Amino acid sequence: MTIISSALPPSPRTAPKALWSSQVLLGPSKALCLLLLLSGQALADWEQQSQDKGVSLWTRQAEAGLVEVRAQCEVVTRLSAFVAIMEDMAAMPDWVAYSSGVERLAKPSSQEDVIHSRFDLPWPARNRDMVTLSRWSQDSDFTLHLKLEDQGQAYPKTKGYVRMEKVEGEWILSPQGGGLVQIRYQGLADPAGWLPHWLVNQIAVKSTAKTLGRLCHRIQGLRYQDSRYPFVTEPPATRTRSEEVKS
């Protein structure tokens, strides 16, 4: 699942390779200063658009006049609850802005899904749809990723919908300690067809803020908190909601 027209800021971890490839070997202090400067320049590309009800949202310019959207919130939750929400496709129209339906087209592996998502957009925009490959992964520090890749070219178009193109996005859940988790979404998509850029960007910002706000409220529900998945490892001392109630 991705959000209409909404690739993370370059990580400073990638910078040292460029630093040491220079013909002049930099000392530790100079290398650190240059690393911080490069990191600051990357973050400066983002412009904060809103901060409301616990959801912060930024945008930056992308190709063809579109904007890339990044939004995040923090909530006390188990990581598996997020997987459970994504698996509950029938309920996605209840919290994903403009969603009119989501279905699984294929399941290449236990951690991959091909998903067809439909969106009923406000006039004068025509309705859109997209097909994406969703892939789960987890880092050694328990950070959970859900990466989205465009698969629209591989499936027939749907009558009454304009097929979105060049869809890319990622959900990142980063444990902060004490059960607190930062949920971040970032992505970009070409809506295709004819739409003025100002309208596309307006829809992108509003839909992302609404979706993330609803998600952070919904994920705390008991029906999701008790879920478990073999490919998700919870941080130490993390308990299900039922275990918390019993204690």
Rank of each mutant, 00 (worst) to 15 (best):
I4A: 06
I4M: 09
S5R: 11
S5H: 13
L8V: 13
P9E: 01
S11V: 10
A15K: 05
S21D: 07
S21F: 02
S22K: 12
S22L: 15
L26E: 04
G27Y: 02
S29H: 11
K30D: 15
K30W: 12
L36M: 10
S39Y: 12
S39T: 15
G40Q: 07
D45L: 15
D45K: 12
Q48E: 13
D52M: 11
K53W: 06
L57A: 02
E63W: 11
A64I: 13
V69M: 04
Q72F: 15
E74Q: 15
V75W: 08
V75F: 10
A81Y: 09
F82P: 01
V83F: 01
M86Y: 03
M92C: 04
D94H: 00
S100D: 01
R104G: 03
L105N: 01
L105A: 02
A106M: 04
P108H: 03
S110I: 11
Q111F: 05
V114C: 03
I115S: 00
I115K: 00
H116C: 05
H116F: 07
S117A: 10
R118E: 03
R118A: 04
D120P: 09
W123Q: 08
W123T: 11
P124T: 02
A125K: 00
A125P: 02
A125V: 08
D129S: 02
M130I: 05
T132W: 00
S134D: 12
S134V: 10
S134N: 11
R135L: 06
F142N: 11
T143Q: 11
L144M: 10
L144Y: 03
H145K: 09
E149L: 12
Q151M: 14
G152V: 04
A154G: 00
V162W: 02
K166S: 13
E168P: 00
I172S: 06
L173A: 11
P175E: 04
Q176G: 07
V181Y: 01
I183E: 04
G187V: 02
L188M: 13
D190A: 09
P191N: 02
G193D: 06
N201G: 02
A204M: 04
T208M: 05
T211I: 06
T211R: 00
Y224R: 02
S227R: 05
T233K: 14
E234I: 08
P235Q: 04
T238S: 13
T240V: 03
R241K: 15
E243N: 06
E244P: 01
K246L: 15
S247L: 15
